[in-house]
């Protein structure tokens, strides 16, 4: 990224609080288009809260979120960033999200899960949405599971359907909140494989993860957080090989010694 480029995502001085308890302190972060960023760190470091503030599932107490240089929301009121309904919807259409617990809609089939928001959020026709849903299921290797309900799918398959559901919205940016933490290692691997492919296809991704191999191999940059702050960040392989900060060293040592 040259200095002239506008980053795809820019977070400026983001603070997030839960019930008066601040969990993210003045975090700023730029993510370039096509970049894959792994957010790592101990539990309670504020990784998920930071990620969730990007699409306002957690409304930041203060700070700004800019997507393609455009600020989402306008100013503060009563300790929360104010965002109009339409601005928020437009922003969320551009930002896909994959959850730890998949959160597929259990009353809908896989293809209906992927088609729903295309129709009701993007305004695509039902046929168009369905066609696209089949394509995205194909993309994650689950074309043959299109008519199946999520309850009949393995955790890994459910998570891939969830990825397809997010991709069908044509997001500019994908957020992954510990996408493999609820899966056993084998099923986690198939999800990581899908994400790896996505990264190669040039998708901009921010991944909160405890999968250090994935972070090292797939991410362009690793951001290490602790106590609600970014402690250290750098090119993935470099940070893994040669962490500078004492807190990072301790964390990576604990991960390796397990």
């Amino acid at each position: 990224m040259t200095t002239l480029d506008v980053p795809l995502l820019r977070l400026q001085d983001i603070c997030v609080s839960y019930k008066g308890n601040r969990v993210v302190h003045d975090v700023s972060l730029d993510v370039a288009g096509g970049e894959v960023v792994a957010l790592i760190g101990p539990s309670g470091a504020g990784k998920s809260s930071l990620l969730r503030s990007i699409n306002f599932l957690e409304t930041p107490e203060s700070g700004t979120v800019l997507l393609s240089g455009n600020e989402v929301g306008a100013g503060q009121r009563r300790g929360r960033t104010q965002v109009s309904k339409t601005a928020l919807a437009a922003h969320r259409r551009d930002v896909g999200m994959v959850f730890q617990s998949f959160n597929l809609f259990p009353h809908l089939s896989a293809v209906e899960n992927v088609a729903l928001a295309q129709v009701h959020s993007l305004g695509r026709s039902r046929e168009e949405a369905k066609k696209r849903a089949y394509q995205e299921l194909e993309h994650v290797g689950l074309r043959d599971h299109a008519e199946v309900s999520p309850a009949k799918c393995s955790g890994g398959q459910q998570q891939r359907i969830a990825i397809a559901r997010a991709l069908a919205m044509d997001p500019k940016l994908m957020l992954f909140d510990e996408p493999t933490s609820a899966l056993d290692p084998e099923l986690g691997l198939e999800v990581l494989g899908t994400m790896r492919r996505l990264a190669h296809e040039g998708m901009t991704m921010i991944v909160v993860t405890h999968e250090m191999h994935f972070a090292q191999d797939v991410a362009d940059r690793i951001v290490f957080m602790a106590d609600g702050r970014i402690v250290e960040q750098g090119p993935a392989k470099e940070l893994m090989r040669n962490p500078q900060h004492e807190r990072t060293i301790r964390f990576l040592k604990a991960v390796r010694d397990r």
């Binding site: 919807a89 009701h120 959020s121 969830a162 997010a166």
Partner: peptide, 12 residues
């Protein structure tokens, strides 16, 4: 999680 998934997908 169902509400969050719906909101993240910008469902009205």
């Amino acid at each position: 999680g169902q509400w969050e998934a719906g909101r993240a997908l910008a469902l009205p």
